[in-house]
């Protein structure tokens, strides 16, 4: 039983990093495809499109930081805490990354014909980033209470 509990602890440590990487990969792929499509339709502003499509890459960075914060000697006592914080933070990163990719794709699609709305079109993606930051910061705060 202890082995299973400790395995969950390790899962919790690595989950934010793995799920953050998946989130960034999917989010960047969605937004990246949108930027490629927009480039075929427009005559300029390519750099901005590529820049937006890299927005979701932050989630893997948050995941790495959470992973290092949670990284400690895994014991049966602290494994449930590591698992709970790590998995839930990872899921939050995953959803934020995917949906931020979609929000970026929409922004690119709208801004390709109306460059003047470029900044405003990024507002939904920025708000999603804010939710990701909440999950990140409070994962760091709450991990301080886990023993070890």
């Amino acid at each position: 039983m202890n082995e299973l509990v400790m395995a969950l602890g390790w899962l919790g440590i690595y989950a934010p990093m793995a799920l953050g990487a998946v989130a960034s990969a999917i989010g960047c792929a969605i937004a990246g495809q949108a930027s490629i499509g927009a480039m075929t339709e427009t005559d300029g502003g390519y750099g901005r499109f590529v820049g937006i499509s890299a927005f979701p890459s932050t989630f893997v960075i948050y995941g790495i930081v959470i992973m290092f914060t949670l990284n400690r000697e895994v014991t049966p006592e602290n494994s449930p805490g590591l698992f709970g914080v790590g998995i839930l933070a990872g899921i939050a990163m995953l959803y934020c990354g995917i949906w931020q990719g979609r929000a970026c794709a929409s922004a690119i699609n709208a801004a390709k014909e109306k460059p003047e709305i470029f900044g405003l079109a990024l507002a939904p993606a920025a708000i999603i980033e804010g939710f990701g930051v909440f999950a990140f910061v409070f994962a760091l705060v709450i991990s301080g209470g886990i023993s070890g």
């Binding site: 969605i30 949108a34 499509g37 339709e41 794709a105 390709k112």
Partner: peptide
Amino acid sequence: MSDRDAYTALVCSLPNSERL
């Protein structure tokens, strides 16, 4: 990626339908 994102590049490569 899911089906809902299947044609992101294609849709973004088309001019806005209202512009038609």
